[in-house]
Design a protein around this nucleic acid. Structure first.
Lengths: 188, 188
DNA sequence: CGCAAGAGTGAGTGGTCGACCACACACGCA
DNA sequence: TGCGTGTGTGGTCGACCACTCACTCTTGCG
């Protein structure tokens, strides 16, 4: 039942932000190649044609979405670092990990990062975005935590393990091997 | 029933194996959704139509390729374990990691696993194959190495970190953050 | 009000994809 | 030599893709 009321137009910039936000959910399930621009439009509540008024092509749209995800991850890590129990590297890294776990309790953000990683293999523009995103993130974690090389590496390795667990829905499987892989990983 | 005799031309079973082997290279760059069955046929030296004579559909084909990859990884880990310097868990795990590093010096095998992980999010049949593959692999590594939960988890977390490094071509980037992430990871 | 600038879309376009089918060719066997 | 079976392909089909354009509607403003 459609309610007939005067249309409220958004500015193009507002629409672009809406698309960036909602497209995360669209790209999360089937990734760059498997998601259509029609689905992106539908998720944002606009026509597919208008998606192309806001972004020059599908690749630019996906890159923008990926960058948006990295920005949100970064913000989440900052929040976590601010709430660390102490300034010891271990405490800061743990607080960051906890904040990250909260951020991705809705899995879509993490799944987009996984799909971005996959698409980075063949699409140079996406690869650049992923490289830049991880470069910034690694350097931020290093600076904010003061951890040594090994701690930083382990932090990101654990993150990648989370990608695996989420992508194959390991939480639905109750078996020794899933318990081994997900041991000690917080999940909200 | 059928007697095994030397044949000049390929049997369907031989062709199927050829496809499994060559399709790894085809799927490695653009994954499940981004790779066409025409590309798979071309890689195997057969027509696209004949791909559909050998496999019922694209999904079954991809699942078979993924299972083939897990089989090869498993074989590689067994070889590594057999050449371990001692039977201490650390030594066995290190030997396995080294064998794995050798196996994926050609990146295609690892990239298919990454793409399988991504496609597992939305395709139930692929998810089942990925789950089964990791289940077998985790249990094998646990049994063959005798490592504790934490060691096994770290082993796979490091593997996932390798996926990230390979997918975004980290070796081409000479920067502190790439050195941090790839520290201590053997590369052939 | 009048109207230009911008928001937003329906209806396509050309191209490609997965899947299918009729058919051609090669071989072992009687 | 001819036949049955299995290998292999060209051609095609409907669906759907990224992308475009002519067009309408809304809104702020003199």
């Amino acid at each position: 039942m459609k309610n007939e009321r005067p249309r409220q137009l958004s500015t193009a910039e507002e629409r672009r932000e809406t698309v960036l936000r909602t497209a995360i959910g669209a790209f999360a399930s089937r990734g760059y190649f498997g998601t259509t621009t029609t689905e992106v439009g539908k998720a944002a509540g606009i026509s597919q044609a208008y998606v192309y008024r806001l972004f020059p092509n599908k690749e630019s749209l996906f890159v923008a979405v990926v960058e948006h995800c990295f920005t949100r991850v970064r913000a989440s890590l900052e929040e976590g670092a601010a709430q660390a129990a102490s300034s010891a590297p271990e405490a800061v890294l743990h607080a960051m990990g906890d904040a990250y776990a909260k951020l991705i309790s809705d899995n879509d953000l993490m799944l987009v990062q996984l799909h971005a990683q996959a698409a980075a293999v063949s699409e140079p523009a996406i690869r650049d975005a992923v490289r830049a995103g991880y470069a910034r993130t690694v350097e931020y974690v290093r600076g904010a935590s003061g951890g040594d090389e090994r701690q930083i590496q382990e932090f990101f390795a654990t993150g990648m393990l989370c990608h695996l667990l989420v992508s194959m829905g390991a939480e639905e499987v109750d078996a020794p091997w899933t318990r081994t892989l997900s041991a000690g990983i917080t999940h909200y």
